[in-house]
Write a protein that binds this DNA or RNA. Structure first.
Lengths: 126, 126, 126, 126
DNA sequence: GTGGTCTAGACCACG
DNA sequence: GTGGTCTAGACCACT
């Protein structure tokens, strides 16, 4: 379980943790039933207090990504591959929809937006 | 000059105001030389204090979008059509770049992303 | 705004606060737009830390009962009288449904349950 | 002896076990003198540790529902049909009383509560 | 002044 | 050991 924090990020710690765990579930690195490390362990490894870790885990639970059990730990919630796939597409569509609305508002044409998307895709690393 | 605030938005008030004025400049509703309403007027219309309005105007001036003259008011800064155009494309490209990186992280292909962009474009109102 | 804590209650502080504010919204003592007292004030009045107060307010916001604005305070969220009414009935129906399922499991008849409900209603104070 | 655990329940494991055994005694599936399965057997079947099972059995004994004999096992305690009946009604009345108080607090009338109870009764399966 | 986030401890119930 | 709740401070951005 690799987690890291960016001191330069404007996002709060708990948000960064949420995003990373969420990402690892969506991209398959974490699967249903996998145990998350105890919050105290994560806190110690990242040299932060338990509070932001706990908060991240809480929001993950509220979002249905994980389940927590007192005395046992936290686990990735059961989720069908199909549901995962739909979630991923929905989130991606959401981001693109935002961008599309913005470009339209700026007076760009669909063709221009597609060209920009292609450029961005190519220059995106990883 | 129509400005509005969203109570549900996580963005601070001054940021919302900045974005709206900025957007109206970029999409042409506000042109070089146009006068901005006095901050007290805006504050009264939106039922907020002058402080966030003042801050929004300040940041607009710092970003070069407006110019303020004590005793006369604030005006949209002169900007060549060409510069405006470049600014617009740059901001749109930025948004698309973000979305592209996200979709790539989610494992989507460029073709899938383009399809989603087209869908979003069609379903976008306004 | 009267809030109180029961030291003997098994419920956590934040839960007690949530229930009380929620109740005051549902029974009309708090109306849309009303300001909630600042969390620090509540904490001081109840001689507790800000944490449980903040948590209660957070859950109220997540549940859609209130809205919070940095620097301005927290306010009862706009909600139509109709929606309020529906919410109240839904919550009451939920409680009764639980009780009904339990009584059924115990082998009681509907008539017996109704008789017990009437008794309870009469003996309920307030 | 069928016992099951709900991962989504907020109740601790020992409590869930307690409730189920208690319920089976009250609804007649378990009768005076019946033997309870050994805690190790239950623990293995439910894939949990013996600790919560042991605790559930202990609380059942403390509540007078079962008797345990070292080396022989645990058995449902003798209880007159009359006492059982009274217990059942008392517990049902308790639940209904809670619900009644809640409905009253919400401003519902007795007639409305009865109507909701009837609805719940009909829609309750099992 | 407000709420939002955080540190560095602590105690509790549960397993 | 685990997570859940809490105290008593602190700093930050926003109004």
């Amino acid at each position: 379980m690799d987690l890291s924090l960016s001191g330069s990020s404007p996002l709060p710690i708990y948000q960064q943790l949420f995003d990373q765990v969420c990402g690892q579930i969506l991209d398959g690195r974490l699967k249903s039933g996998d145990a998350l490390p105890p919050i105290r362990t994560v806190a110690k490894e990242l040299s932060i207090s338990v509070i932001p870790v706990k908060r991240a885990w809480e929001e993950l639970e509220a979002a249905g990504f994980i389940e927590s059990f007192v005395g046992r730990g936290c686990f990735i919630a059961p989720m069908s591959a199909d549901k995962l796939q739909r979630l991923k597409r929905a989130m991606a569509a959401d981001k693109l929809s935002d961008a599309a609305a913005y470009c339209k508002g700026m007076g760009l044409t669909l063709a221009e937006a597609e060209a920009l998307l292609k450029d961005a895709w190519r220059s995106a690393e990883k």
